[in-house]
């Protein structure tokens, strides 16, 4: 499974939805009522353990983890930098 598929599957399973015409990879998942604070914190933990990346405070404040594409882009960048 690719990184993108893995994140997509995690989000769909965890937050009980499917990416479709109304929720796309660019949808702000906060605004769509998909992610909450509890889910957000758990998602960060998932990304760190699943892809062996370390998310720093600076990463968090300079990246916007709200859509599949944004999360995926960040993880890809982290993996290639490591």
């Amino acid at each position: 499974m690719t990184t993108t598929d893995s994140i997509r599957k995690y989000l769909e399973d965890r937050f009980l939805f499917e990416f479709d015409d109304s929720i796309t990879p660019d949808t702000d998942l906060f605004k769509a009522g998909v992610i909450d604070s509890f889910g957000y914190v758990r998602m960060m933990k998932f990304l760190e353990s699943e892809f062996s990346v370390k998310i720093t405070s600076e990463d968090i404040l300079t990246n916007v983890f709200v859509s599949l594409n944004a999360i995926d882009g960040f993880v890809q960048k982290k993996i290639s930098a490591s």
């Binding site: 960060m44 998310i55 968090i60 916007v64 983890f65």
Partner: peptide, 12 residues
């Protein structure tokens, strides 16, 4: 343990 993550959330 989760404070850094929450900072990002509250920022938004």
């Amino acid at each position: 343990a989760h404070q850094a993550h929450l900072l990002g959330l509250y920022q938004q």
